[in-house]
Simulated scan of single mutants.
Amino acid sequence: MSLSVKFAFFCSFSSLILQASFLFVKAQKNNGGVVVSTQLWCVAKNNAEDAPLQQALDWACGPGGADCKPIQQGGPCYDPTDIQKTASYAFNDYFLKKGMTDDSCSFDNTAAVTSLNPSYGNCKFPASASASNGSFSGSTAADMGSNSADFSGCDNILGTIWFWLLITIHLFFVIFQVN
Rank of each mutant, 00 (worst) to 15 (best):
residue 45 K to E: 09
residue 27 A to D: 03
residue 38 T to R: 14
residue 63 P to F: 04
residue 41 W to C: 02
residue 29 K to Q: 13
residue 18 L to T: 12
residue 166 L to N: 08
residue 126 P to F: 03
residue 90 A to Y: 06
residue 109 N to P: 00
residue 66 A to I: 11
residue 133 N to V: 02
residue 17 I to Y: 11
residue 85 K to P: 00
residue 43 V to Q: 04
residue 14 S to V: 09
residue 120 Y to F: 14
residue 130 S to C: 12
residue 55 Q to M: 05
residue 38 T to S: 14
residue 104 S to G: 03
residue 171 L to R: 01
residue 49 E to W: 01
residue 165 L to S: 12
residue 57 L to D: 02
residue 153 G to L: 07
residue 15 S to F: 14
residue 45 K to D: 05
residue 30 N to V: 14
residue 131 A to K: 06
residue 35 V to G: 09
residue 147 N to K: 05
residue 109 N to E: 14
residue 34 V to N: 01
residue 21 S to N: 15
residue 161 I to Y: 13
residue 139 S to W: 07
residue 177 Q to D: 13
residue 138 G to Q: 09
residue 51 A to C: 00
residue 72 Q to D: 08
residue 30 N to P: 00
residue 30 N to T: 11
residue 43 V to M: 06
residue 111 A to N: 02
residue 146 S to Y: 09
residue 48 A to V: 05
residue 145 G to C: 06
residue 33 G to F: 10
residue 89 Y to D: 04
residue 114 T to A: 06
residue 63 P to E: 15
residue 140 T to A: 10
residue 2 S to Q: 08
residue 103 D to K: 11
residue 90 A to W: 07
residue 15 S to H: 02
residue 26 K to Q: 14
residue 6 K to A: 02
residue 145 G to K: 03
residue 6 K to M: 01
residue 36 V to T: 10
residue 140 T to P: 00
residue 14 S to T: 15
residue 34 V to G: 03
residue 169 I to P: 00
residue 90 A to F: 08
residue 94 Y to K: 01
residue 156 N to W: 10
residue 83 I to E: 05
residue 83 I to K: 15
residue 36 V to M: 15
residue 179 N to S: 10
residue 14 S to F: 07
residue 123 C to D: 09
residue 112 A to D: 07
residue 151 F to E: 07
residue 73 Q to F: 04
residue 5 V to E: 11
residue 152 S to H: 08
residue 159 G to H: 06
residue 96 L to M: 10
residue 171 L to C: 12
residue 176 F to C: 01
residue 64 G to A: 07
residue 117 N to I: 11
residue 7 F to L: 15
residue 49 E to S: 13
residue 61 C to E: 07
residue 170 H to K: 07
residue 125 F to T: 02
residue 121 G to M: 04
residue 163 F to Y: 15
residue 108 D to G: 05
residue 143 D to K: 03
residue 77 C to S: 08
residue 135 S to R: 13
residue 92 N to D: 09
residue 100 M to K: 09
residue 53 L to C: 05
residue 105 C to A: 07
residue 105 C to R: 02
residue 125 F to A: 04
residue 27 A to V: 15
residue 31 N to M: 10
residue 147 N to T: 07
residue 136 F to G: 00
residue 8 A to G: 13
residue 20 A to L: 15
residue 135 S to N: 08
residue 2 S to C: 05
residue 46 N to P: 00
residue 1 M to C: 04
residue 13 F to P: 00
residue 53 L to T: 08
residue 155 D to S: 13
residue 158 L to T: 08
residue 106 S to Y: 13
residue 17 I to T: 13
residue 74 G to C: 02
residue 105 C to P: 04
residue 82 D to A: 01
residue 14 S to G: 10
residue 44 A to K: 03
residue 73 Q to K: 15
residue 83 I to A: 07
residue 95 F to I: 09
residue 115 S to W: 06
residue 80 P to G: 04
residue 120 Y to S: 12
residue 152 S to Q: 12
residue 94 Y to P: 03
residue 71 I to N: 10
residue 130 S to K: 08
residue 58 D to R: 11
residue 78 Y to Q: 05
residue 3 L to D: 03
residue 127 A to C: 01
residue 104 S to Q: 02
residue 52 P to S: 04
residue 30 N to E: 13
residue 45 K to W: 02
residue 157 I to T: 12
residue 42 C to T: 04
residue 5 V to W: 03
residue 129 A to V: 12
residue 91 F to L: 06
residue 159 G to L: 12
residue 121 G to C: 05
